[in-house]
Design a protein around this nucleic acid. Sequence first.
DNA 1: AATGAATGAGAATTCATTCAT
DNA 2: CATGAATGAATTCTCATTCAT
Lengths: 217, 217, 217, 217
Amino acid sequence: MVVKTKIKDPDLIQKRQKQICRGAMRVFRHKGFHSASIREIAKASRISLGSLYDYIEKKEDILFLVHSDILDRIYECLNMCMDAYESPIDQLTHALQELLNLSCEMKDEMLFIYTETKSLESKYLHEILKREAEFTDSFEKLIQRGVDEGVFDCPKPRLVSNIIILVGAIMPLRGWNILPYHSSEEIVEELIHITLKALNVRGESVPGSKSRVVAAT
Amino acid sequence: MVVKTKIKDPDLIQKRQKQICRGAMRVFRHKGFHSASIREIAKASRISLGSLYDYIEKKEDILFLVHSDILDRIYECLNMCMDAYESPIDQLTHALQELLNLSCEMKDEMLFIYTETKSLESKYLHEILKREAEFTDSFEKLIQRGVDEGVFDCPKPRLVSNIIILVGAIMPLRGWNILPYHSSEEIVEELIHITLKALNVRGESVPGSKSRVVAAT
Amino acid sequence: MVVKTKIKDPDLIQKRQKQICRGAMRVFRHKGFHSASIREIAKASRISLGSLYDYIEKKEDILFLVHSDILDRIYECLNMCMDAYESPIDQLTHALQELLNLSCEMKDEMLFIYTETKSLESKYLHEILKREAEFTDSFEKLIQRGVDEGVFDCPKPRLVSNIIILVGAIMPLRGWNILPYHSSEEIVEELIHITLKALNVRGESVPGSKSRVVAAT
Amino acid sequence: MVVKTKIKDPDLIQKRQKQICRGAMRVFRHKGFHSASIREIAKASRISLGSLYDYIEKKEDILFLVHSDILDRIYECLNMCMDAYESPIDQLTHALQELLNLSCEMKDEMLFIYTETKSLESKYLHEILKREAEFTDSFEKLIQRGVDEGVFDCPKPRLVSNIIILVGAIMPLRGWNILPYHSSEEIVEELIHITLKALNVRGESVPGSKSRVVAAT
DNA sequence: AATGAATGAGAATTCATTCAT
DNA sequence: CATGAATGAATTCTCATTCAT
């Protein structure tokens, strides 16, 4: 899916739309989508109001571009992470760890996705949900492979992959209630531990953690 | 916290504000808070525009009233549910079951809470988060009692209670990805199973479920 | 001219309308006529919104009542003052002195008259201007009598009486620029002095002033 | 002080704000500030509602612009007039004459200033009063110079300059009561005569008047 | 390609007035 | 006579979008 523009040069489109994404997100962070005016977005993007409309057609296009940009960044990280390991357990633990790290670093962006996806118009909504579904699928496949290899015990991999993705957003969604009591490192470690326990993995190893290495093999 | 009105009769205030809540929610369901106009809300509430403003001061007041109303309904159900049982395991399983049932029946309302809490103005936001925190606390205490009684194994009850509440919203937040593959009954059952497993409960019994009554390890 | 009411008892009308005048003026003082809402006026008058409308028909009626009330108070004082003296010079000096004193004590009221008379609807405007004209007439007659008696030199008594009345409002209209430099007593004394000079009165006596008594007859 | 705009081109701002001033004044003349709606003002200014708000921020800004514009016009005339003469008597008589002429030609504008200055918000009110004060100062200095040169007898120049300015608005404020009896030329001539008399000027000459050229006492 | 001025539909909110009790 | 809840027209202001330069 592509946003219709008045401009021909594809490189310029790419560059300016990225510029708009970053500017827009800077505004959305504080005011949300609806309260952000196109004027503010143009100013934050260091682009004129007229030019802005050369690269998009409607305000909602920006919402889609920002969604796309955020998902791109998240999925790229996670795919790289999964590709770096072979065994399902390693893949899962590292992917989960990466997801949780991202949810710290990109807290605002993830919260934005959770709160503003509903504002997408139907055409864009389906596109974005399709991409989210693909992402969930990759987790599901990973778990299924673990089940097939006998390292995971999980009768409903789709449900569990959805839980994982939901819990992957625990920082933006529930951080306000947890962070005053636990550091993000503690949270990440414990969440991986719980996940592996829920998958009946015995003798887990948590990457980057000393305290639990004793239980390894 | 109370919304300032021009009306004196407290019963009438109560009645009309409830009326407004229901009407407003009917509109918010389809359009969200920002896209819903005050005129639509008035119409849906079967109240005149002028009268509406006799019972609130600003549009944001409606957002708060709706939040309050939804939380009231959810928390009342859950408190009744917890009070009906003695043992932490029974309390937890029934509360979780009730929470998940509510998240089916009040899917839109819960999604609304997750997506629009950010639109509350500071004063109201704090009030609502305070109530959510109290709710989380009651889950935390429940788990802690289970730990004290030796039936739960859980080093970070606060984290886990937050996970439970987050997962309690899995229907509104991830239902679109799960429900095409599993019935809500299946989901509820499996989620309770996973939760108890995460708490290291051996020999669990799921209420209303036959299949798992003897499903010990 | 009389404001139409729903109430019969004339004493009650009198009493309540006075009550409304005082309440309304309290609000007008700070916000002016247009920015004052009927609700505020009712509250300040310690009368219910419904009752208020038993004693007036429209908001403008209040404006007229307040105008009437203020003019009544001013003219009553001045008429008493003029009646207390015989000679034109005494009458003029004491009337002017009284007028200037009133313009200190009723600064807000006089300013209100000057700024809000234009808001009166035609019917009321004519009534109020008629009363102001009568008031100007009485000054004009006073001056004319002085001219006839040979104590004043004034070819255009009407113009001068208008000047006197205008200067009588110098406190509310220009006080902000004068009062930081001169006390109101100084101002009053000097204004009387100038007025008598303008009327070619030689050897004037200013009431209540010591400094100028030496110049007395 | 400058009204904040969304427009960058300063010439355009100047031009449009003047356009708005004139349009607004056309409406204010009949209805006053509060009763004039922004829509009417836009229409009278031959500018669209949206554009209007590109050149101002709030309705009150228009009030300030109009005040500014009127004072500019008046003060420019008077300064030119004062600069054209050397002696205090000439300056005073010509300035007074000019002021009274202006008060005939700009009757509505002056009345507007007197009745609507109170509607200015604090920030603007102070600015406008500052300019009025400067204007009064210039009259005070003129009188003081006359006193220093021995041609005026005036112990309180500040008070007298305020009287002059107040009397300078006699046409808009009291014209309704005088003009049916005297022509504006008569009024102007007599007012100058009285003023000079009040300043103890002997052997005055009124500009443009023959009858009084030798009218010494 | 880029700029920024122009537009008007639509938003929230206020308030004089009426009317049932 | 008194009360205060109800009404909806009118108001100010915002903002996405277009268009001339």
